[in-house]
Computed example of a mutant assay.
Amino acid sequence: MNFLEKITGSDMTKEMKGFEARAKVLPAEYQIAWKDITSHLWIQADFTGRNLMPILESALELLEVTSADGQSVEEVLGEDIEDFCKALVGDEGTKTYRDKWREQLNKNVARKLGGLK
């Protein structure tokens, strides 16, 4: 990956397109699960989302292997995909990008209000 790819994120775009192409060959229920997994995991991303790429890769590999074995999505991921995603990223005590932005906003407001006294 060169500097320009890293700055623009084009390397991640290529990687995500590759993931999507691999997901398209999965059975329909697995494709739906993949879309749910990606939507639940992106809220755990940092600003660029680079921290999620290995996790997304592993999740897709899990779906590919288990679909080849003929297992159902529920057998693999459980009843709640959101809980699966939380366990996957270790949600205990982790902050989403929204939490980080909220914390930064609160600090800025407190600093501004503290400076007005």
Score class of each variant (00 low, 15 high):
63 L>T: 08
117 K>R: 11
40 H>D: 07
82 E>Y: 10
76 V>L: 03
101 W>M: 15
21 A>G: 02
59 A>C: 15
94 T>K: 15
65 V>H: 08
91 D>L: 07
46 D>S: 11
96 T>V: 03
37 I>K: 02
109 V>M: 07
100 K>H: 10
12 M>R: 11
88 L>I: 01
43 I>M: 13
114 G>W: 05
8 T>F: 02
43 I>F: 11
11 D>K: 07
30 Y>H: 08
112 K>G: 09
26 L>R: 05
11 D>R: 06
59 A>F: 06
18 G>P: 01
72 S>G: 09
45 A>Q: 12
6 K>T: 14
86 K>W: 00
79 E>Q: 11
68 A>N: 12
95 K>S: 12
32 I>P: 00
89 V>Y: 02
57 E>Y: 11
87 A>V: 06
96 T>Q: 08
21 A>L: 10
108 N>M: 14
78 G>C: 04
79 E>R: 04
78 G>M: 06
77 L>V: 05
49 G>R: 05
8 T>E: 00
84 F>W: 04
11 D>Y: 05
64 E>V: 05
72 S>C: 08
83 D>T: 11
80 D>A: 04
36 D>F: 09
40 H>A: 09
46 D>L: 08
65 V>K: 13
3 F>C: 11
36 D>W: 10
20 E>T: 10
54 P>Y: 06
29 E>L: 05
43 I>Y: 11
19 F>V: 02
84 F>Y: 13
114 G>T: 02
85 C>D: 00
93 G>M: 02
94 T>M: 11
31 Q>Y: 04
70 G>Q: 07
27 P>Y: 04
79 E>W: 08
9 G>K: 02
57 E>L: 09
51 N>L: 06
89 V>G: 03
33 A>Y: 00
28 A>S: 12
7 I>R: 02
6 K>W: 14
86 K>L: 06
62 L>E: 13
94 T>E: 10
10 S>D: 09
14 K>Q: 15
76 V>Q: 02
46 D>P: 00
58 S>I: 07
25 V>D: 09
23 A>R: 03
48 T>E: 14
76 V>G: 05
4 L>K: 10
64 E>Q: 14
113 L>V: 13
107 K>N: 13
74 E>F: 07
54 P>L: 04
39 S>Y: 07
39 S>W: 07
22 R>S: 04
29 E>C: 06
12 M>C: 07
101 W>K: 15
76 V>M: 02
83 D>V: 10
24 K>C: 05
43 I>R: 14
90 G>T: 00
73 V>S: 02
75 E>W: 13
77 L>Q: 06
50 R>N: 10
43 I>N: 09
41 L>N: 01
3 F>G: 08
52 L>S: 01
56 L>Y: 10
104 Q>T: 13
